[in-house]
Amino acid sequence: MPKPRRLQQKRGWAFAICIAIVEPLLLLFTKRRWSGGEHLPATGGCVVVSNHVSHVDPFTFAHFVYDHGRLPRFLAKAAVFDVPLGGRLVRGAGQIPVYRLSADASLAFRAAVEAVEKGECVVVYPEGTITRQSDMWPMTGRTGAARIALTAGVPVIPVAQWGPNHILAPYAKRPRLLPRKTIYVAAGAPVDLDDLRSKPLSPDVLREATDRIMDEVTRLLEGIRGGQAPAVRFDPRAVGVREIGNPHEKKSRNRRRA
């Protein structure tokens, strides 16, 4: 599959290593059905948002962003940065640690704003974790992506993805590489936030911006899947589902103890 756009940035040693290892595997084990890549700005700061369906999708999504001429800077959970060798690679590749549910959570926001102000492409999963919705539709979003974009005055590019979950289901242990899985990625035009940019960043403004972002991601996913998402978006906090980690882990432990 030819590259839709040439990379204009210097990759650096960490990205070069990651690309040399990961890209051949993705080309070998996946088929790609990509659309809308022209909506990713060729240069300049931007926030790219997507639904989250598998622990594999950061790799397949990075493939999409990279093949459209940008180096993705993910907001990734801080634990990844503590992994030997892997942590050095993600730091070297300019990824941004997120200290979820901690006093240091604001550090990721400041780092992301600095990155987009320097012209970087920052990738955010607004759901904050793999979807807990039973049919894997997008959940309610957190306001971080909207806050970054409105603070820095950069566009938000909505993207939907589907297919990585067929390689590795949420919280599964073993990937299913064969037969080759098709990875669907669809990007849309920047989310219209112009009327909100001059307003103070109140909770209502951030919620409105976030709802618009998630509406666009959901609409794009409906196009990929050929179905309709639930009229009311799933909110894990409202129903008491744990916000991070495997939502079934406690239940499994209880079964083992029983």
Rank of each mutant, 00 (worst) to 15 (best):
residue 201 L to F: 08
residue 8 Q to R: 14
residue 200 P to L: 13
residue 146 A to C: 10
residue 139 M to D: 14
residue 192 D to G: 01
residue 210 T to W: 11
residue 16 A to D: 14
residue 148 I to Y: 12
residue 152 A to H: 03
residue 31 K to D: 11
residue 110 R to P: 00
residue 126 P to K: 08
residue 127 E to R: 05
residue 186 A to F: 03
residue 46 C to K: 02
residue 114 E to V: 00
residue 225 R to Q: 10
residue 173 K to M: 06
residue 7 L to N: 13
residue 255 R to Q: 12
residue 54 S to K: 11
residue 119 G to Y: 12
residue 73 R to E: 06
residue 201 L to E: 09
residue 32 R to T: 11
residue 71 L to Q: 10
residue 37 G to C: 08
residue 138 P to Y: 09
residue 117 E to N: 11
residue 69 G to K: 07
residue 153 G to W: 10
residue 116 V to R: 07
residue 194 D to P: 00
residue 49 V to M: 07
residue 216 E to Y: 01
residue 203 P to T: 07
residue 4 P to L: 13
residue 97 P to I: 05
residue 89 L to H: 06
residue 95 Q to L: 05
residue 249 E to W: 11
residue 14 A to G: 03
residue 52 H to G: 00
residue 116 V to K: 05
residue 156 V to Q: 09
residue 125 Y to K: 01
residue 72 P to Q: 05
residue 8 Q to G: 15
residue 212 R to Y: 04
residue 103 A to R: 15
residue 110 R to L: 08
residue 144 G to H: 12
residue 195 D to W: 02
residue 162 W to N: 03
residue 173 K to P: 01
residue 141 G to Y: 04
residue 13 W to L: 15
residue 203 P to G: 06
residue 173 K to A: 12
residue 72 P to W: 02
residue 108 A to D: 04
residue 209 A to S: 07
residue 257 R to M: 09
residue 202 S to L: 13
residue 9 Q to L: 10
residue 187 A to P: 04
residue 226 G to L: 09
residue 241 V to A: 08
residue 91 R to Y: 02
residue 28 L to V: 07
residue 59 F to K: 01
residue 124 V to E: 07
residue 225 R to E: 06
residue 99 Y to D: 08
residue 240 G to I: 05
residue 11 R to M: 14
residue 118 K to P: 00
residue 74 F to V: 01
residue 156 V to N: 07
residue 214 M to Q: 05
residue 62 A to D: 02
residue 9 Q to F: 13
residue 60 T to Y: 05
residue 185 V to Y: 10
residue 221 L to N: 06
residue 9 Q to T: 11
residue 50 S to V: 04
residue 237 R to S: 13
residue 133 Q to W: 01
residue 219 R to C: 01
residue 253 R to S: 04
residue 173 K to I: 01
residue 195 D to P: 00
residue 48 V to I: 15
residue 48 V to C: 04
residue 220 L to V: 03
residue 71 L to A: 02
residue 241 V to C: 01
residue 194 D to S: 15
residue 112 A to Y: 06
residue 204 D to I: 00
residue 176 R to G: 01
residue 183 I to K: 07
residue 105 A to C: 02
residue 186 A to K: 12
residue 228 Q to S: 15
